[in-house]
């Protein structure tokens, strides 16, 4: 495999990142490394810039300082061709699914396939059906328009589209927000399952403590404009920081832990 001669240690390497809106600084001197094949969960209070961090990594919010390396390549310094190559190796699930509303679910999934791969229509359809089914949607969902889907189904359809090109990294922005607990648990299961079978690296922004417990190999905590703790959940929980203690030891944190223990 070509990638065995990897020229990088981490699939995502964020160094000294600074992002700001006008004078308002969201991140300053932020470092974060993501290893290949892990699920990393990014948590933090509202307004700490979890989604902004994700947007900075996937190229939607240009940082004012620092570097973002993906597959060892500096994304913001790469030329168009290298950038396009990187973009084909990741998939992104936006918070609301961000499906193209004028296309059916299957057409949504086929959109990147048609654009980037030179495949027959028939094979593209087979691939779309496969991804739709793998995302846990019923068979007839492919012909539906996004406006006909429930919130949970939109997320699954968005996941199907993000998996269309067999990405190596998947970015998930609050994948379980707005789902009922059963749906959320199933989604967690799906993500772990896909990670194991497809060898994905998953970068997940989440608030959901149950999801953290159920899926994440490592957790990164955002506060004070940087990552204040990063590591396996059990280690991070022991960090002596007011927000972390409140987050993991509050009633919801304890409940999630109890579920895990049982």
């Amino acid at each position: 495999m070509t990638d065995q001669t990897k020229a990088y240690d981490h699939v995502i390497e964020v160094k000294g990142l600074k992002t700001q809106f006008g004078d308002f600084v969201v991140h300053e001197n932020l470092d974060l490394n993501v290893r290949s094949g892990e699920i990393i969960g990014v948590v933090g209070g509202s307004g700490t810039g979890k989604s902004v961090l994700m947007r900075a990594i996937i190229g939607l919010k240009r940082p004012s300082a620092g570097t973002v390396r993906i597959f060892g390549e500096d994304y913001y310094k790469a030329d168009d061709k290298a950038r396009e190559a990187i973009e084909q190796r990741w998939g992104v699930l936006f918070q609301g699914g961000a499906l193209f509303s004028s296309l059916t679910v299957a057409q949504n999934v086929m959109a990147p396939i048609r654009e980037h791969l030179n495949l027959s229509e028939e094979l593209a359809k087979d691939i779309a059906a496969l991804k739709i089914s793998m995302s846990g949607l019923p068979e007839d969902a492919g012909a539906k328009y996004p406006s006909e889907l429930s919130g949970g189904m939109k997320k699954r359809a968005g996941l199907a589209r993000s998996l269309a090109l067999d990405p190596e990294i998947v970015f998930l922005d609050e994948p379980t927000a707005g789902l009922d607990p059963i749906g959320a648990a199933k989604f967690d299961e799906l993500i772990v399952n896909l990670k194991e079978s497809l060898g994905l690296t998953v970068f997940m922004v989440t608030h959901d403590l149950d999801t953290l417990h159920a899926t994440c190999d490592r957790v990164a905590v955002l506060a004070e404009k940087r990552v204040i703790a990063c590591g396996p959940l059990d280690e991070v929980r022991k960090t002596d920081h007011a927000w972390i203690q409140e987050y993991f030891s509050g009633p919801r944190g304890r409940a999630a832990l109890a579920v895990k223990a049982s």
Partner: peptide
Amino acid sequence: ALLAQVEGHLQPCHVEM
């Protein structure tokens, strides 16, 4: 693992009504 993952999801595709 990949072959097993895919096996349960072979189905015809509905693109449009």
